[in-house]
Simulated assay, not measured.
Amino acid sequence: MHRSATDPRPRVLHLAQPVGGGVARVVLDLAKAQLTAGLRVTVACPGGELAERARDLGAEVRGWRADRSPGAGLPDEVRRLGRLLDEVRPALVHAHSAKAGLAGRLAVRGRVPTLFQPHAWSFEAVGGATAALALRWERWGARWAHRVVCVSEAERATGVRAGIRARYTVVPNGIDTGHFTPGERPAGAPLVVCVGRLCRQKGQDVLLRAWPEVLRRVPDARLALVGDGPDEAALRRLAPTSVEFAGAVADVRPWYRAADLVVLPSRWEGMALAPLEALACGRPVLVTDVDGARESLPPGHAAHCLVPPGRPGALAGTVAALLLDPELRASLGGQGRRHVLSTHDVRRTAEAVAELYRELLGGRPLVSFECRESIHS
């Protein structure tokens, strides 16, 4: 249901290209908090799970056709977004991830307050000439972001080292600690769970290469990969029979609660949600030392729960050592739950973002876009 143009409540536009995974989760958590606070919220995306769930929350949803990666269709994507912006007329635009950040900043060009949240830098996801182009764009496009929101201090530092001159704000990721709660682990053989999109970023191939050594030391261990993605067929070719491909699931909590250990062997991140969710469920996590990983762990956990990225041998040794030490796992899980409650509750994240919105608009209530100059004038 569309509200009257005279509705005095401010409108925020969240722009996202990924419609699943961590980016969608962040958008939905923010939209829920902002709707509760009385803002009008529009989510523009290519449909899918994000659109369905945003609509269920009460947000206005606008379709924005866009591919995941930049290509020949980018000019049309920017034009479509420009028309959408003229129709929605938001007080503030919050663009999530590389593609929405690219198209959004090209369409708005700083004419209304614009936040760009990379959710991991685009130039880390590619190599060669493509990485150079992505970095060049991020340096150039920073002028059209009133603030770049990083989910970890490490992500911000990566941007600074790369020469991206921007006004940065660090807002750590948060999760719903009332939704992700501990539960009793079912009886059975030791279970390692990896939750994430099946793609190069998440590093499931590294975990599968480590798995034979884990089995040599813990012969009855099992591994479950929870999620789907473009690398599924290749990963299945690497996997022995002790590996289960669970696919995408509507509710990941039973997998966390069934796990003895949750592993995320990423090649790059900003700050992944899966480790925070697992910690909230009272389960120990093992992560690779990429952006945001150390910051997501409780103090003292790095000695037990952090390994170099892309190193199957180091990963195998640490997975096996944790599986063979149930007392340490129990201690780590309990500490992890307390850490997430105190540091990564989604309410903290939503309030930090709300404060940033207020700051960008001079500390006053968000004003409606109806009073502003058209972005195409």
Rank of each mutant, 00 (worst) to 15 (best):
Q335V: 02
A154R: 04
P190C: 04
P75F: 01
F116N: 03
M271H: 00
D325W: 11
S4H: 10
P254S: 08
Y168M: 02
G163R: 08
L261G: 05
G47E: 04
G48E: 06
G310E: 13
W144G: 05
G38C: 01
E359A: 15
L261W: 02
L356H: 01
V353P: 00
D345V: 09
L102S: 10
S377T: 14
E124L: 15
T318S: 11
D56Y: 00
E327S: 15
G334L: 12
V193S: 06
G292P: 07
A95P: 01
A278W: 03
L279G: 06
A145T: 11
E244Y: 00
V12R: 04
R311D: 15
E60K: 13
T6Y: 09
L92N: 02
A37C: 03
L81W: 05
R53T: 06
R156I: 04
E269Q: 13
P275E: 04
A95M: 05
S152I: 02
E213H: 11
A120R: 05
R11S: 04
R80E: 04
E213D: 13
A132M: 02
S122F: 06
V249W: 11
L81M: 02
A31L: 03
R156Y: 12
P254W: 11
V287Y: 01
R25H: 14
E277W: 07
L341S: 06
D176L: 08
G178V: 04
A131T: 10
R267T: 02
I164C: 05
G73K: 12
S4N: 01
G73C: 00
V353D: 02
R311I: 03
C150L: 01
V151S: 03
T241L: 08
A166I: 04
R11N: 05
V170H: 08
A142R: 01
V226K: 07
G363L: 08
G73D: 15
T177Y: 09
C45L: 00
V148W: 00
R79G: 06
A91W: 06
G362I: 14
A37Y: 07
V151T: 10
G22N: 07
H146R: 09
